[in-house]
């Protein structure tokens, strides 16, 4: 699936252009997302990676129109199904949410309402968008539970969330997200809170369903090992900005940006036994106190005066592979792949 036809990449389901999402704070305006651009091809999985606080979740909320006030989208466009989501009314966004774009969240224990039955929470999701009889919505919900691999869905429909295990709860959340066969799913670290065996099961199930229904997905994660298994494309975020994007396997094999390199090297599986685990030195800068020039320059081993002088980083492009670096790493073959 990594060698998707070029045509699919040319017809993006979602295009984010120069998105800026800000949060006013007493100390100043925090740009949680700053000039972010990327697109997600039909049927493809885009991995959005970065450390906590890099702005990847806020990007997801921005697309859903669920940025917590007083935070808001201050600029840019989000093109989806021929519309700019930034300019849609509340009602229009509500009708898109859950129907055309669905979202699943990190902690399956907190995603479902503890005092409502699974059937209530599924049926309401259907009837929010389709005026069909309750009984029909119930049947469709039950079928959706079966689809994500929940045993005896008929009985489980009347259960409450606490009667499910963590993995099963996440399956229920996925079933709800899939109810309307959305063309895009935003998954905000949906497997982080699960143990590895459950994680693999969920990943396999997601991959299958994506293929089956030809859905595109944005997989928000800090876990590069999951991203390398699941994603076709990758976008690496740092301090609210995009630092590198391209085909996932190429970027992970031959990263151009020192930050991407650092993320990959931090994976424990990359270190040999007995070898010291590698890490990126330093901390992500305070959002109100970003370094001049390249935002990564204060942690970057390759940074020099040129990095700190340049106020706006130019984006170097090689085909669909883009990076924002004055001194990109230059390893591995570049030619003959795009």
């Amino acid at each position: 699936m990594h060698t998707a036809p070029a045509a699919a990449r040319l017809v993006p389901v979602l295009t984010v252009e120069d998105l800026t999402t800000v949060f006013p704070t007493p100390r100043g305006l925090v740009k949680a997302v700053d000039g972010l651009s990327f697109s997600v091809g039909a049927g493809r999985v885009m991995g959005l990676v970065g450390e906590s606080g890099s702005g990847k979740s806020v990007t997801g909320y921005s697309i859903m129109g669920l940025v917590e006030p007083p935070g808001h989208i201050a600029g840019g466009r989000i093109l989806f199904a021929g519309r700019d989501l930034v300019r849609q009314s509340r009602t229009e966004m509500r009708s898109l949410r859950g129907r055309a774009i669905a979202m699943i969240f990190q902690d399956p224990a907190m995603t479902l309402n503890p005092v409502l039955r699974i059937s209530t929470q599924m049926v309401e999701a259907i009837r929010a968008h389709e005026k069909i009889p309750r009984a029909e919505a119930w049947k469709r919900s039950r079928d959706a539970l079966g689809l994500v691999g929940i045993p005896s869905p008929d009985e489980r429909m009347s259960a409450y969330p606490h009667e499910f295990s963590g993995g099963m709860r996440q399956r229920v959340a996925i079933a709800i997200a899939l109810l309307h066969r959305p063309s895009l799913i935003i998954a905000d670290e949906p497997t982080t809170a699960l143990d590895v065996t459950i994680q693999s099961q969920i990943l396999a199930r997601m991959q299958l369903l994506m293929k089956q229904y030809d859905m595109a997905m944005i997989w928000i994660s800090h876990d590069l090992s999951v991203v390398s298994r699941l994603c076709d494309d990758i976008a690496v975020m740092y301090a609210g900005r995009l630092v590198e994007t391209g085909l996932a396997d190429r970027v992970i094999a031959h990263p151009r940006h020192p930050y991407t390199r650092g993320l990959i090297d931090s994976l424990p599986s990359r270190a040999r036994r007995g070898e010291r685990l590698r890490q990126i030195e330093g901390m992500m800068p305070e959002p109100l106190d970003l370094p001049e020039g390249c935002v990564f320059s204060n942690r970057c081993p390759r940074a020099d005066a040129a990095c700190r002088a340049n106020p706006v980083m130019s984006v170097s492009t090689y085909g669909a592979w883009q990076w924002r670096c004055v001194h990109p790493l230059n390893e591995g073959p570049v030619h003959g792949h795009s």
Binding site: D107, T111, L112, A128
Partner: peptide, 11 residues
């Protein structure tokens, strides 16, 4: 999160 998820369902 369940409130956010409820909104995400389009309720």
């Amino acid at each position: 999160t369940f409130v956010l998820f409820a909104h995400a369902k389009g309720l």
